[in-house]
Each structure stands twice: as C-alpha cells, then as structure tokens.
C-alpha cells in the first residue's frame, strides 16, 4: 500500500475549476485596488513628498525603483517555488503559475534597472557601474529572458517537457541571495538595505514619510503584480483547455472518418 499524504491537500487546491472559482472574483479587484493605491502613492511621491537633504529631488524615484526591485526578485521567488512544487509534488497548476509570473517579473526587473540608471546618473554621475548589485540584477533580467524562451520552446515541443523549465527556475534562484547580499559582500556605490527587521520594530534608518510612502507603493505594486499573474494564469489555462478541446474534436473526426472509410 502506498501512502500519499503529502500530495492530497495541495492537489485539492490545484484543481483548475477550483482555482478559477477563486481567481475570477479577485482578479479585477486586485488590479483596481492595486492601481488606485499605486497611482495615489506615486502622485504623492511626485507632487507632495519632500526633497531629501542629500539626494534632492531624485529621491522620488525611490517609490518606483524599490517596489520594482522587490517584485523583480519576488517574481523569480514565485517561479522557484512553483518549480519546486512541480518537480516534487507534480502540482497541476505549478508550471502555469511559474510561466504566468515570468513576464511581469522580467518587466519589474527591467524597470528596476532602468529607474536605477536614471537615479544613478544624477546621484553617482554614471548611468551604470559594474558592481555586484547592478550586475546581479542584470543577470536576473537575463535569467527571466532565458526562462521565457525555454518555457515557450518546451510548451511548443508538447506537454510533459515543462520539467526542463522547472529545473532552470529552481537553479536560477541561486541568484536571489547574491542580489540581496551583494552590497554587503562587495564594495558598492549602491546603498545597503534601509528596510529590514529594524523597520518593523520602528527604528528604520529611513525617515517615516519616505518609509510609509515606500511601504504603500510596494503594497500597491504587489497587488497589481498579483492581479496580473492571476490574469496570465487564467489566459494560459483557457488556452490549454481550448487546445485540448480542439484536439479531442479533431481526433473524434479522424476516428469517425476512419470508420466511414
């Protein structure tokens, strides 16, 4: 007798019909609430937030750059967790979740790089420096591009090959701690993290008006990210179901034609 206690609860939530019942009512609210919060915080950041003593006006880029970095890394964390879930438990929605997170993750990694460059030019006098933080973030963007190409190629090759992309997703997660600790391990123009456990205890080195604005912006962008990932999961699922139905119908026609002949 084979005991399969690790598989049962997770697969209860992995049923596509059950997933759609959960995803349908929350996709639009996530996008609407996330969009409204993000726009409100960015309007405040652009028009009302005070200039900073050392960085001047450029500090306003913080409200886009930091959430973009967080979501660039968060997107790959989701890919890695979904890949692990696919490889270990063969979770039926895992490859869909990983693929759905890839494009938004790549977008936010690129946004982080571009806004960082726009911040670096007036602050450091350089658009780009090859230090640990910037280089490891660029590597993350290239990993996203490779993952998207690999997932697309394996999908075209047919079902059952998604494990190759899952292994790549898991191995690529090695880059995440490198990004996080790069400013501690190596000399860098980039500042060390300002938000950590100290912020939760109320003694962050960041001034409260910037800290609360940044947390609100991160929440808004994260809700948008969640809504986009759900929308993309629904897209992939609908495409799979359509293709399966069309394949079944084509096979029925073929069988019928063969019987007639």
């Amino acid at each position: 007798m084979v005991l399969n206690i690790t598989k049962a609860p997770m697969h209860d939530y992995a049923n596509p019909a059950r997933f759609l019942r959960l995803a349908r009512p929350i996709t639009a609210p996530l996008l609407l609430i996330g969009g409204a919060l993000t726009l409100a915080v960015l309007a405040w950041g652009l028009l009302r937030a005070p200039a900073e003593q050392l960085q001047g006006e450029t500090v306003r880029i913080l409200f886009i750059h930091v959430p973009a970095a967080w979501l660039g890394m968060g997107g790959w964390s989701m890919i890695a967790l979904a890949s692990l879930s696919e490889l270990v438990w063969r979770h039926p929605l895992a490859s869909i979740a990983a693929r759905a997170a890839a494009l938004p993750g790549a977008f936010f990694a690129l946004l982080c790089l571009v806004t960082g460059s726009l911040w670096g030019r007036p602050a450091w006098g350089a658009w780009w420096v090859w230090d640990g933080r910037l280089t490891s973030m660029l590597v993350l963007f290239f990993l996203y591009c490779a993952y998207l190409a690999l997932a697309d190629a394996t999908e075209r090759a047919g079902q059952g090959n998604t494990r190759i992309a899952a292994i790549f997703g898991l191995v690529g997660a090695v880059n995440l701690p490198i990004i996080h600790y790069s400013v501690i391990w190596w000399n860098s123009l980039h500042q060390v993290p300002s938000i950590g456990m100290s912020a939760l205890r109320g003694n962050s080195p960041m001034a409260p008006e910037f800290l609360y604005g940044l947390l609100a912006a991160t929440l808004g962008f994260s809700l948008l990210f969640g809504g986009v990932v759900l929308a993309r999961m629904r897209t992939l699922l609908a495409d799979q179901q359509t293709q399966a139905r069309l394949r079944r119908r084509a096979m029925d026609h073929t069988d019928g034609g063969g019987a007639d002949a």
């Binding site: 450029t58 306003r60 880029i61 886009i64 571009v114 806004t115 726009l118």
Partner: peptide, 12 residues
Amino acid sequence: QLAFVYAAYALG
C-alpha cells in the same frame, strides 16, 4: 534632477 524623476515615473 526633475527630468530624471519624470522619466522614471513615465516609464514606471
């Protein structure tokens, strides 16, 4: 500086 800020916000 504001030119860089506006560019970042427009792209974001």
